[in-house]
Every structure is written in C-alpha cells, then in structure tokens.
C-alpha cells in the first residue's frame, strides 16, 4: 500500500462531502430561482396544498389527541400533591404549543409527506418522467419542487394549529374526566404563563419543518439513482434526514428564539 492512500481517501471523502453539500445548495438555489416561474407552479399549488396539507390533517389530529391525553396524565402523575393541579393545564398547553405540536407533527409528516414526495419524484426520475418534462420545455424544479415546498410551508402551520388545538382539548377533556380537575382550573393553568409569542414560535417551527421536509423529500427524489431500489433508498434517506433536521432545527429555534 502506497503511503498516500490514506490521504487520498480522506481527501476524496472530504471532497465528496462538500460536493454533496454543493449539489444540495445548488438544488435549493435552483428552487428559489424557479419561484419566478409562477406560470408553471401556480396552477399546481392548490393540488399540493390539498395533498400535503389537507390530507395530512387526520394523522396530525390523531397524533396530537393522544399526545394531549398522555401529557395531562403524566403531568398529574408528576405533580402529585406538591404542586397545584392547575399546572396540568400549563404543562399541557405549553408543551403542546411549544414543542410536541410542531415536532411530533413534523416527525410524523416527514414520514407521510417527505417519504411520499421522495418516492413520487424518485419514481419519476428513474422512469425518465422528469426528463420527459424537460423535453416538453417544463422546468421540472418549478413544476415538481416549488409547488410542493410552498404547499408544505403554507400548510404546516395550519396543520400544527389544528394539532395544538386538538391536543389541548384532549388534555382538557382528560383533566376534567380522569383527573380531579375543573374546567376553570385547567383554563387557569393554561392561561397562566401563556405569551402571544408562544404561537408565533410554534408557527415558525411548523413552517421551517414543512420547508425542510418538502425540500429534503424533493432533493432525495430528484437525485434518485437506479430503479425501485434507488427509490427505496431515496425515501428512507428523505425520512431519516428530515427527521434529524427537524430535531436540529428544533434545538436551533430554542437557542435563538427562547433565550
């Protein structure tokens, strides 16, 4: 083995990592540029808002309902005796709005939406449908990527708003039925530490998660290689990477906006 071998592999590893990043940012930049092509993505926006947004509401609601119930029960379990029970309302509301609403919805939808986008675009890539779009003078980024990202950005806050509401409602119903609490107590706790910024924060998170999920899904789909297996790889990557990015972003927002 020649002595340059390790350096060679380190060097090419670094280069390929930067290369991949470059491709990704190139793709993101291309998406931004393609925003100008309103004529191409405009008519598709509503369709994707429906598919990414409206159709995701049931799963988001399902998720947040159970989250709300569990939060209420766990809060009362944790607070036994020492802390007034109305703090159950505080904990359910704050946790739901600030963290679990956006993050759990984001993670669930990275599976539903991100995987869906990656698989769909991946299939289009390997069956040359994206090339076909090109040959018919459609900018595939404007046609496929932009409406999906925009739809996700626009609809995620809405989905999360519904999720937050239902989660808190579920927490409230649990509190008055299972725990020995009154509606007044729950509402008192809920309103106690509420700040209008809480909702802004929740929405900022939701928007950024929507953006990340759609962008990663599109990127992975667009750069799928090979056949069905390639589509599988792209889908898995889309879910894993966007899931990780959601958590990283979550921490990022907490550091930048809550301090």
């Amino acid at each position: 083995m020649h002595w340059t071998r390790p350096f060679d592999s380190i060097g090419s590893g670094v280069l390929s990592a930067f290369g991949a990043l470059g491709v990704f940012f190139g793709f993101a930049a291309e998406s931004v540029r393609s925003l100008a092509d309103v004529g191409t993505w405009g008519p598709l926006l509503v369709l994707h808002m429906r598919r990414i947004g409206v159709d995701s509401i049931p799963i988001a609601l399902f998720l947040s309902t159970f989250t709300g119930i569990v939060l209420a029960l766990q809060a009362s379990y944790t607070f036994t005796g020492a802390i007034p029970l109305y703090f159950v309302g505080t904990l359910v509301g704050k946790t739901m709005i600030l963290e679990l609403g956006p993050v759990l919805t984001g993670l669930a939808l990275s599976g539903r939406v991100g995987a869906n986008i990656a698989a769909e675009l991946g299939t289009m890539r390997v069956s040359e449908q994206i090339d076909a779009l090109e040959t018919m003078a459609y900018n595939p980024v404007a046609y496929l990527v932009v409406p999906r990202i925009l739809a996700a950005i626009l609809m995620f806050p809405i989905i999360v708003a519904f999720g937050n509401t239902l989660g808190i409602t579920a927490g409230w119903i649990t509190s008055i039925n299972v725990l020995d609490m009154s509606t007044e107590q729950f509402v008192h706790g809920l309103q106690l530490f509420y700040k209008p910024f809480d909702i802004t924060y929740s929405m900022i998170k939701a928007t950024s998660f929507g953006f990340v999920i759609a962008l990663i899904g599109c990127f992975q789909g667009f750069h799928t290689q090979g056949g069905a297996e390639g589509v599988g790889v792209a889908t898995t990557r889309a879910v894993v990477i966007s899931g990780m990015l959601i958590l990283v972003l979550d921490a990022f927002w907490a550091f930048t906006l809550l301090q």
Partner: peptide
C-alpha cells in the same frame, strides 16, 4: 381541491 384547501386554511387561521 380549491374549496377544501380554502376551508382548511380559513379554519386554521381562525383557530390560530
């Protein structure tokens, strides 16, 4: 689709 999306968006904004 337009109607569904419209209803959802309006309802979401109202809820918020």
């Amino acid at each position: 689709n337009e109607v569904l999306v419209g209803i959802t968006v309006v309802a979401g904004l109202v809820v918020m």
